[in-house]
Amino acid sequence: MDNQSTKTMSSKAANTLSYIGLEAESTKKTVEALQQLLADYQIFYANLRGFHWHVQGKQFFTLHVQLEKMYNEAAEIVDVIAERILSLGGTPENNFSAYLKTAKIKEISDVTSGEDIINQTLDAFKILIEQERNIIELADEANDEGTSDILTGFLKEQEKMTWMMCAYLKK
């Protein structure tokens, strides 16, 4: 992790943790994993915007609308992740240059085929779901039910969306 993700906590953040009953040391791994998830979600969001703009073909009307819904939801999730990092005493990264250095999801350009867009999105969901499950485990170890609950909600919706996309691809 870079310096951004391992910044020391301010006394205000330490106070927040004491009020919510968590310890800085026990949440450190969770914060680092949330930083990774934030980077990947930011790239995922940008990819969804590009897919929305560039989709072509017979599936245009369906996918154009669905992709807009998905990138709006991704933007909300990005905000929730960043705010959770702050709640746990971290400082969320906010530079795309830093995201690109650590993200497991890579930038995707010039994809116009609906099928390719769905497959790329499914690949991204696979990465996000794996990370979210890992964060739930880390949060559980730290007795951080708040983070577990947030990530469980993300996971539930992504599993459902994955099922729907797989069904959409069936011929």
Rank of each mutant, 00 (worst) to 15 (best):
D2E: 09
N3V: 13
Q4D: 02
T8E: 15
S10W: 08
S10T: 15
S11I: 14
A14S: 14
N15A: 02
T16I: 13
L17F: 06
L22A: 08
A24N: 05
E25A: 11
S26M: 06
S26E: 07
T30N: 08
E32T: 14
A33F: 09
L34F: 01
L34T: 03
Q35S: 07
L37K: 01
L37M: 07
L37P: 00
A39D: 09
A39C: 08
A39G: 00
Y45H: 15
A46K: 15
A46L: 15
N47M: 05
F51E: 06
F51L: 09
H52N: 15
W53D: 05
V55I: 09
V55E: 03
V55C: 04
G57D: 03
F61N: 09
L63K: 02
L63V: 02
H64F: 05
H64D: 03
Q66S: 12
Q66E: 11
L67D: 06
K69T: 14
Y71T: 07
N72T: 15
N72V: 11
V78G: 02
V78F: 08
D79P: 02
D79R: 02
V80L: 08
V80M: 08
I81F: 04
I81P: 04
R84D: 03
L86P: 02
L88R: 05
L88F: 02
G90C: 01
T91M: 07
P92W: 03
P92K: 04
E93P: 00
E93N: 05
N94Q: 13
N95H: 10
F96T: 08
S97T: 14
S97R: 15
A103M: 14
K104H: 05
K106Q: 12
K106M: 05
D110Y: 14
V111K: 11
V111H: 00
T112V: 10
S113K: 03
S113P: 00
G114Q: 02
E115V: 14
D116P: 01
I118E: 10
Q120T: 01
Q120C: 07
T121K: 15
L122Q: 05
D123N: 10
D123A: 14
A124I: 10
A124N: 13
A124M: 12
K126G: 15
I127H: 11
I127E: 13
L128F: 09
L128H: 10
E132I: 08
I136M: 06
I136V: 12
L138E: 12
L138Q: 12
A139G: 03
A139S: 13
E141K: 12
A142G: 11
N143E: 12
D144Y: 07
E145Q: 14
G146E: 11
G146A: 14
D149V: 11
D149L: 11
T152K: 06
F154A: 03
L155Q: 01
E157F: 03
Q158G: 04
E159A: 03
K160R: 10
K160H: 09
K160D: 09
K160P: 00
T162E: 06
W163Q: 10
W163H: 10
M164Y: 09
M165Q: 08
M165I: 01
Y168V: 00
L169S: 03
K170L: 14
K171G: 09
K171W: 04
K171C: 00
